[in-house]
Design a protein around this nucleic acid. Sequence first.
RNA 1: CGUGCAAGUCGUCUUGUCGCUGUCUCAUGGUAAUAGUGAGGAGGAGGAAAGUCCGGGCAACAUAGAGCGCCAUACUUCCUAACGGGAAGGGGGCUGACUGGUGACGGUCAGUUUACAGCUAGUGCAACAGAGAAUAUACCGCCCUGAGCUUGUCGAAGGGUAAGGGUGAAAAGGUGGGGUAAGAGCCCACCGCUCUGGCAGUGAUGUCAGGGGCACGGCAAACCUUAUGGGUUGAAAGAUCAAAUAGGUUCCGCGUCGGAUUCAGUUCCGAGAAAAGUUGCUCGCUUUUAUGCGGAAUGGGUAGAUCGAUGGACCCCGAUUGUGAAGUCGGGGCUAGAUAAAUGACAAGAAACUGAUUCUGGAAACAGAUGAGGAAACAGAACCCGGCUUAUAGACUUGCACUUUUU
RNA 2: GCACUCGUAGUUCAACUGGAUAGAAUAUCAGAUUUCGGCUCUGAGGGUUGAGGGUUCGAAUCCUUCCGAGUGCA
Length: 129
Amino acid sequence: MNYRLPKSERLHADKLIKELFNEGSSFFLYPFKVQFFVKKDQGSGTSQVLFSVSKKKIKKAVGRNFVKRRMREAYRLNKALIPPTAPAMSIGLIYVSSDLMEFSEIQTKIILALKKLATIVSENQKQHA
RNA sequence: CGUGCAAGUCGUCUUGUCGCUGUCUCAUGGUAAUAGUGAGGAGGAGGAAAGUCCGGGCAACAUAGAGCGCCAUACUUCCUAACGGGAAGGGGGCUGACUGGUGACGGUCAGUUUACAGCUAGUGCAACAGAGAAUAUACCGCCCUGAGCUUGUCGAAGGGUAAGGGUGAAAAGGUGGGGUAAGAGCCCACCGCUCUGGCAGUGAUGUCAGGGGCACGGCAAACCUUAUGGGUUGAAAGAUCAAAUAGGUUCCGCGUCGGAUUCAGUUCCGAGAAAAGUUGCUCGCUUUUAUGCGGAAUGGGUAGAUCGAUGGACCCCGAUUGUGAAGUCGGGGCUAGAUAAAUGACAAGAAACUGAUUCUGGAAACAGAUGAGGAAACAGAACCCGGCUUAUAGACUUGCACUUUUU
RNA sequence: GCACUCGUAGUUCAACUGGAUAGAAUAUCAGAUUUCGGCUCUGAGGGUUGAGGGUUCGAAUCCUUCCGAGUGCA
């Protein structure tokens, strides 16, 4: 199983991020807001993900780093929940709680979020097909 | 032993699994070099990385020189690349102890604190209270002269007076004495202030002598004056490379056909094509289309990438100079470099903190042992340094002070 | 990262060049009016002027250090 998360699987290009937030769709699953955008004419390639924590919610830089690292770990260990047949897309995981959470808690929530994302994407595929 | 204060140092560690990041080596890849992929090696947050309060490096732009303006600083000497930082010293304030004096007040020692140039340049400010608030002031009071008649502990009017009362944050030097009608630096001594000179000190300043006489009250974190310093903007500075698309410039080819002409599709004549209008339709007539299309080269430049950007006023150790901040010399070391932003997650254990319970001693307080469980500070580099400020569980070292117990 | 602005009753704003007890509207509470409520009238409470330190006789105001909120710069 591939548990790696190199730079090519992280979203870092300014254009793609603007595209994600301007044209993507989203849903809430506490404590996350999941923003995603299916790339057109790409087939089933590698997805790219970004993690975001608001400065308004968590004031201290240490706390923000702490949450982002735990989110990244949780995604890294559970990214297989998105089936490889799914189309390539940009994913944004935004932390909207103002409390610091334990890793186990974040992990369960991430799993739920990814499962929901996978079902939404597969339904979209069926509708288009 | 404990507690407190001051100064300084440190501010978790080990193992395993799965990752992130730059770098080195090897392999793969490829004409070659990058990029990518795989394996391995040795690295990967702080004392404040924070606040952004100062200073410097660095970069771009500006700049003959000078002045005005604006901003900052402000006892002295030194340290430093520089500073609003630091060191040492001086002066002032406060506290305590001792001490001199009738008194105002002074002296010595210790601790602590201090944004500490100039209101003896100018301008300005001081509510309320108070008679009077900065060219002082006469309310009560005190004293003198004393019209008058009610002859009194009376007193119109005039004058003297800042010692006393009262107001205030502040009442125009203070204390003691002389003096006077009562008073007053009016006079004297002392205390304080200030000026001049001598001496000591690099200097702030100290000290001694003489003079002035009581002014020259307070506020400059009021305007301001003086001295010194500062060009402006900040890495989102700036430098290099540079896709796609659109557009710029240059060149080439085509330009409905024929003829003539021109530097030139430049102009003319004839014929023709397409579209629109006129009409119910065709012919005819009129108008429009042709300053466009394609290709190549080229400069600017966006996305993006690279550099800036991590070897430096560097760190450690030793010697030496200096009261000290710090300097000099010698030896050793290389110690994060990310960019939608790495330095992590999980598990186990070990030190340090807190300490339920149980056991022993004891009348008790408590002491010694046991050690379940809990908690694990403040906080995350963003171009780099030197400071300052603020946050911080706990541990250790040194010095000082104090309490209690035991010997 | 850099540059800058602002914090006053529960809320919206005042308070001159430092001058005393920080003022107004609204909201709250109480009373009057009404059969009851609203409107209206009268009155009261409510502020460590964001926090600490300093300058001054005196600080919301001046200086300084923190805290919080906000704005601009590609």
